[in-house]
């Protein structure tokens, strides 16, 4: 019997997710032994044409990381969907739009003008912008088109499973692959992580006070962080209460508050709204002005509460066009 065929692909991402696959270390060897990797452009030399040449559903499972924000990423996603039995959205960007999704706060032209003109490190007096088609002596050179908005993977193609995290924790990846290989699969659409919030088995839970109440929040740089005590109880904006567990407390053990990369539990529709309401609930003030002052201690609220999920939030984006798709 032939081995199951597996592929990895990346879209709008930082590359950390690819790193995570490499991080599987010994675990990856077992995986490699059990499967045929048929597509992994980041690590091996595969071309789009190789995929096009495959029969439909020939790939058993494709792991796609990164958000979708260009015509090329969309084409690849559609192609891979066609060629694969299972599409697994891999990592926060693919799952919820991720940090690239924060671009949805701005219009495309503003993004381009920042990057190609006004940024401190940019010198571009003629304001040359990337073009989808450029005439060159050899003919016409093409570039993919940047979309108006950033999308999560499941906003553009049908997705079977989600592996959350920035990047997804090793253990969850191994569990997911094992489940795939054994055919012991949860219902379609499931997020392959425990469905409870991080506080549940947080290493600091025992130090949580009965009532969480603060006058203001602190940024990690503003206080000396006690390495044992519940971070939220110290006035840090720890999003553990809002965020799915399964990360093995990577940040918490690094003495840093949870920033929410694992996304919400299945019961929550809008991560950022929940995060905001949860953190606002902790503010123990009655005077409107004081409340305002206290909320002002949260620098960049959208970037804080929607850090990974703006693209999939109820807010979607600053502009209402359905940019490119």
């Amino acid at each position: 019997m032939s081995k199951p065929k597996i592929g990895f692909y990346w879209c709008a991402s930082c590359g950390g997710c690819e790193e995570a696959i490499v991080d599987l270390n010994e675990a990856v060897l077992d995986v490699v032994a059990a499967v045929d990797i048929v597509f992994w452009p980041c690590a091996m030399d595969f071309k789009k044409s190789d995929v096009e040449a495959m029969a439909d559903k020939e790939i058993t499972a494709i792991f796609i990381n990164g958000a979708i924000r260009s015509s090329e990423q969309f084409e690849m996603a559609e192609l891979l969907r066609k060629k694969s039995q299972f599409v697994i959205s891999f990592g926060s960007c693919s799952h919820e739009g991720g940090i690239p999704g924060l671009a949805n706060l701005y219009k495309k032209e503003d993004l381009l003008s920042t990057v190609y003109s006004t940024a401190f490190s940019t010198i571009n007096p003629n304001y040359t912008l990337p073009q989808t088609q450029t005439k060159v002596p050899e003919g016409i050179a093409t570039l993919p088109e940047l979309w108006e908005t950033v999308k999560s993977l499941d906003q553009v193609i049908d997705v079977d499973y989600f592996l959350p995290g920035c990047p997804p924790p090793v253990k969850l990846v191994v569990d997911a692959v094992t489940a795939l290989l054994s055919g012991n699969l949860p219902p379609k659409g499931a997020v392959l992580a425990p469905d409870k919030a991080l506080c549940d088995d947080c290493t600091r839970k025992a130090t949580k006070p009965e009532k969480l109440q603060h006058k203001r929040f602190y940024r990690p740089s503003e206080i000396l962080i006690d390495p044992e005590k519940c971070l939220l109880a110290q006035g840090l904006l720890c999003l553990g209460p809002v965020t799915r567990m399964g990360c093995d407390w990577a940040c918490i053990n690094g003495n840093m508050p949870c920033t929410g990369c694992m996304g919400p539990t299945s019961r929550v529709r809008d991560y950022g709204a929940k995060a905001l309401s949860a953190m606002a609930s902790v503010i123990d003030l009655n005077d409107e002005e004081e409340i305002q002052k206290s909320m002002d201690s949260i620098v960049d609220p959208v970037g804080t509460f929607y850090r990974y999920s703006l693209a999939t939030s109820q807010l979607h984006s600053a502009i209402h066009t359905n940019g490119g798709k």
Binding site: D195, K196, A197, L198, C199, D200, K205, K208, P209, E210, K211, L212, Q213, L232, G240, P241, M245, T265, R267, A278, S281, V282, D284
Partner: peptide, 25 residues
């Protein structure tokens, strides 16, 4: 099975109806 014991709710209840189970946290 769904509660993480984050205690966000405890201080909020205006009727002090919520408490933490000391064993299950």
């Amino acid at each position: 099975e769904n509660c993480s014991g984050c205690r966000i709710c405890v201080a909020l209840c205006p009727y002090t109806a919520i408490t933490t189970d000391p064993v299950k946290l």
